[in-house]
Design a protein around this nucleic acid. Structure first.
Lengths: 230, 230
DNA sequence: CAGGCAAAAAGTGCATGCACTTGCCTTTGG
DNA sequence: CCAAAGGCAAGTGCATGCACTTTTTGCCTG
C-alpha cells in the first residue's frame, strides 16, 4: 500500500480498527448482514488486511460480527428471538445493578445520582431529546458502577452496547422523556431508601418498557439499505 | 516454517489455536500472569505467528488474555476482587436461569432434569467424584438451556468457563457431594412446582457456597509455577 | 561495587505475497 | 433448453519479512 496512515493512532492499529468497525455497527451505520470485505475495509482505513483481519476476529469473538470460514465476515444478524432474549437479559442485568446499587452505593454516589436525576427534570421540561439521551446513558452507567461488581458491570455494558442499534427506535415515541424520567424516579427513590428489591423491580420494568417499544420498530427495520463508503 | 501441520484441523487454524490456548488457560495448565510468547506458541503448534496473534487477540477480547501493546500477552490475571465479582455474578446469573427454568421449562425438560438428578443420587452414595462432576456440569447446563434465553445462556456459560480454574478447588472439601446434591434438590423441587423465586434463591445459595469454598483456596494459589512445554 | 548507558537480542506490529477456496459465469454435452 | 463441468475473478487464510519497540546484556564510569 502507499506510505502514510491517514488517522492519528492512539492505541494499536488493530484497536483502532476494532473501535472504528464496532462503532459503525453499534451506531447502525453498518447494517446486519452487510458484507465486511477485508480488502475494502483495509483500503477504507488505509491499512493492510492484517489488522483488519485481527479486528474482525475480535469483533466476531464479541458477537458483533459473524465469520464464515473462507466465506468472509458479515455484520452479525440478530434474530427477532435473540433480540428479545437480549432485551430480557438487559432487564435482568439492570435489575441486578439497581438492586446492588440500592444496597451498596456510597453516600457520595447516592447524592450525585439523585442530584443529576433531579437536574435532568429540566431537560424533560425543555423536551431536550438529545441532552436527555446523554443524561440517560450517564444515569444507567451510574447504576452499573454503583453495583460495585466489575463483572456485572462489564456484562451489562457490553449487552447494552449490543442493543444500541435497536434502542434508537424509541426516540420517536411521544412523551417518552417524561415517562422515562418517572421510571428513573422510581429507581432513584428505591435506591435512596436502600430498597434493593424495589430498585430491581423498577429497573426491570424500565427496561421492559423500552424493550417493547424497540421491538416494534425493530420488526420492520429489515430494509437492506447500503451506505458503504465515501 | 516447515511443511507439515501436526494437528488435524477441524475449523480454521485460528479457531484451533483459540480453543487450544483457551483450554490450557481454563484447565489451569497455563497460569495467570504467565507470558504467552507468540513465537513459542507458533513453534509449539507448528503454525506461523499470524494465526497465533489472531487467537491471542480473540482471547483478549474474551478476557482470558491480557495484551499490553508492544509488550506481549499474558494469561489474564484475575484479582481477588474481580474473582469475587465473577462469583457473585455467577450466583445471580444462575439464579436468573433457575427462575426462568421454573417458569418456562417444557414438560420434557422438567422430567429429564428430575430423572437425571435422581439418578445422580447414586453417584453421591458411591462417592464417584469424577462422574458426579460430569453430571454436575450437565445439571447446570440444563438450567441454562431451560431458561429459554440464548443471551443469558451465553453470558452464563462464558462466565462459568472463566471461573472453571477456580472451581477445582472445591474438589477437596469433604462431604461436598452430598451437600451439592442437597442443594440441587432444592433447586429441582422449586422448579418442579414452578416456583421461580424459590428456584432462583436456591440456585444463588448453591453458587455462593461453592464460591466461598473456592475463594479460600484461590487466595493462596498465587505461586508462579511454570510448566511450559515439552 | 553500584549505577548508568549503549548496543545487541528478543519480541511485537504490520505489510505483502502466495496458495487455496468460493462464487459466478460461461461453455458444452445431453 | 437445461444441467453439469470447467474456468475465471474475487476474496480468504496463512507464511514470511522488515521496521520498530522493549528488554537484556555487558561494559564503562564514578
Amino acid at each position: 500500500m502507499s506510505g502514510k496512515r491517514s488517522l492519528v493512532r492512539s492505541g494499536t492499529t488493530v484497536d483502532q480498527m476494532v473501535r472504528a468497525i464496532a462503532d459503525r455497527i453499534v451506531t447502525g451505520y453498518l447494517h446486519p448482514g452487510e458484507k465486511l470485505d477485508e480488502g475494502s475495509l483495509a483500503a477504507r482505513f488505509d491499512v493492510s488486511r492484517t489488522p483488519v483481519r485481527e479486528a474482525l476476529g475480535q469483533l466476531s469473538a464479541m458477537g458483533l460480527v459473524e465469520r464464515r470460514p473462507n466465506r468472509g465476515a458479515i455484520v452479525a444478524v440478530i434474530t427477532q428471538e435473540h433480540l428479545a432474549s437480549m432485551f430480557e437479559s438487559m432487564a435482568e442485568l439492570e435489575a441486578i445493578c439497581a438492586r446492588f446499587s440500592a444496597e451498596r452505593m456510597t453516600g457520595a454516589e447516592r447524592r450525585s445520582l439523585e442530584m443529576e436525576h433531579q437536574a435532568s427534570a429540566r431537560l424533560v421540561q425543555l423536551g431536550a431529546e438529545e441532552d436527555y439521551e446523554y443524561f440517560n446513558t450517564d444515569f444507567h452507567s451510574r447504576l452499573y458502577r454503583g453495583a460495585h461488581n466489575t463483572h456485572i458491570h462489564d456484562l451489562t455494558v457490553t449487552t447494552r452496547s449490543r442493543l444500541a442499534p435497536f434502542r434508537r427506535a424509541q426516540f420517536m415515541l411521544p412523551g417518552r422523556l417524561a415517562k422515562s424520567w418517572q421510571e428513573h424516579d422510581m429507581i432513584v427513590t428505591a435506591i435512596m431508601r436502600g430498597d434493593g428489591v424495589g430498585a430491581g423491580k423498577a429497573a426491570r420494568d424500565h427496561v421492559s418498557i423500552v424493550s417493547e417499544a424497540s421491538a416494534v420498530f425493530a420488526a420492520d427495520d429489515r430494509k437492506p439499505t447500503r451506505r458503504d463508503v465515501a
